[in-house]
Design a protein around this nucleic acid. Structure first.
Length: 120
DNA sequence: GTTCTGACGAACA
DNA sequence: GTGTTCGCCAGAA
C-alpha cells in the first residue's frame, strides 16, 4: 500500500469550496497518526500537482510554508472557491465549522474500497 | 543499524 | 481563547 497515492487521491477528492485537515486525510488513508506524513509528502512534491491548498492544519490554519509561490496564494485560491479566510495572529485561517470537509461514513468506505481495488 | 527532522495532533496548563 | 509538551511515523543522512 502506498500512503502517498492514497493521500493524493483524497486530496483530489476534496470538494470545491471545502478544506480538509492533515489528520483527516491521514485518517482516510487508514493511518490516523500520520498527519505529519501527509504534510511531508506534499511538501516534498511527491504527490505531483494536487490541490494541496485545500489542506490545512487541524485548527483550520493555513500552514503557510506550502509549495506555493507566495504566502497568500493559498488564501487567494481558497477565496476563489468561496472559502472565507480570516487573518489571525497565527496566520490565515479558515472556519472549519463552515468550510471543513465533512467526510461521511460512506465516503470513507468508498475510499477504502477504491484503495483495495487499485491495490494501493 | 541510529538519529534527526518535519505543510501535524491531542492533551494539557 | 493561548502557549507548551509530548507522541506519532516515514524519510533522509
Amino acid at each position: 500500500m502506498d500512503f502517498y497515492e492514497r493521500a493524493k487521491m483524497i486530496c483530489e477528492n476534496i470538494p470545491r469550496g471545502r478544506v480538509a485537515t492533515y489528520g483527516q486525510i491521514a485518517l482516510l488513508c487508514g493511518k490516523p497518526r500520520n498527519a505529519r506524513q501527509v504534510g511531508y509528502a506534499l511538501n516534498k512534491g511527491r504527490l505531483g500537482d494536487v490541490p494541496a491548498y485545500r489542506v490545512v492544519s487541524g485548527s483550520g490554519v493555513l500552514s503557510g510554508a506550502a509549495a506555493f509561490e507566495t504566502y497568500d496564494m493559498q488564501k487567494i485560491l481558497l477565496e476563489a472557491e468561496g472559502v472565507e479566510v480570516k487573518r489571525t495572529k497565527k496566520g490565515w485561517k479558515t472556519d472549519l465549522k463552515r468550510f471543513g470537509w465533512r467526510t461521511t461514513l460512506e465516503e470513507a468506505e468508498s475510499f477504502q474500497e477504491m484503495f483495495q481495488k487499485k491495490n494501493i
